[in-house]
Design a protein around this nucleic acid. Structure first.
Length: 266
DNA sequence: ATGGTTGGCCTCCAA
């Protein structure tokens, strides 16, 4: 079973790229962020036509918006409201899995909660995620927590940890908050389960580079975490880096994790 | 140290 997360940065503008991703990689479940469209205008028909019949999405005008697109039946769905009314979370139950799709606030430019309310929002949002899981889920839950978490937690999740130490997405307080969230909920970082900590690994390259490939100033902002009881089911991961070269690309690339189906797990 | 680009929309905000 393949699960992919992708910050698509407007689903209406990039519906053809989404179809291309689905055709070429054939994921079972797709988690999208920044759909930037209200539910009434979500391109559900186009997805139905290519075999993704089970959809759950929460959108808003212009900003945010998250969606889950599935070939497999969705048994239940819900959205958690944290901090404000932004559409930043959807979750579904599919088979024995509970899959959470988050779009954590980017946090603005100034890494100071007193000067920058967006940075405060970001850090509080991470804290509220932690509190929700602590209150509502336990070690037996089979959880996948994924999405655009907007934080690159480890040294080699960015092109230069030193040069980005005061840049929002890689500040010490954000890195600590994200690592604490992951550890306190007992979740495995699928990417670093397969890729050693000393190897660079990115899922995002800014639009503000003339040649993203040449400068290669990437960050790993997109994550798929799985609960410990799913660790033995991890098969492989992949960042679809060539998506950054597609026509009219998102600044994020799709990140895929492959796990065994429950029926063939040991 | 600075500025660079993109998407959605109401002339600028968020990323």
């Amino acid at each position: 079973m393949k699960i992919v997360t992708w910050n698509i940065n407007s689903i209406r503008l990039r519906i053809v790229l989404l179809e291309q991703l689905l055709m070429t990689h054939n994921p079972d479940i797709v988690l999208l962020q920044e759909t930037k469209v209200i539910n009434d205008l979500f391109p559900a028909d186009a997805l139905h036509e290519i075999g993704y019949r089970h959809l759950y999405y929460q959108g808003q005008k212009s900003y945010n918006g998250v969606a889950i697109i599935s070939k497999l039946p969705i048994d239940a769905s819900f959205s958690i409201k944290l901090y404000n009314d932004d559409k930043r979370h959807v979750a579904v139950k599919i088979g024995d899995l509970e899959i959470h799709n988050f779009y954590i606030p980017a946090g603005g430019d100034i890494p100071d909660i007193n000067e920058n309310p967006k940075f405060r929002h970001k850090l509080e949002y991470v804290q509220l995620i932690q509190e929700w899981f602590k209150a509502n889920r336990n070690q037996e839950s089979k959880i996948i927590l994924a999405g655009d978490l907007n934080i690159a937690p480890l040294e080699h999740d960015v092109w230069s940890s030193k040069q980005l130490s005061k840049v929002v997405s890689h500040t010490g307080v954000e890195r600590a908050a994200l690592i604490n969230l992951q550890n306190s909920l007992g979740l495995i970082d699928s990417a670093r389960y397969f890729i050693p900590a000393h190897e660079k690994f990115y899922t995002w390259w800014s639009y503000r580079n003339i040649d993203w490939q040449k400068s290669n100033r990437g960050r790993r902002l997109d994550h798929i975490w799985v609960s410990k009881n799913l660790q033995s089911r991890l098969i492989a991961i992949e960042a679809v880096v060539d998506a950054r070269n597609w026509q009219l690309p998102s600044d994020h690339v799709p990140y895929i994790v492959q796990i065994t189906d429950e029926t063939i797990s040991v």
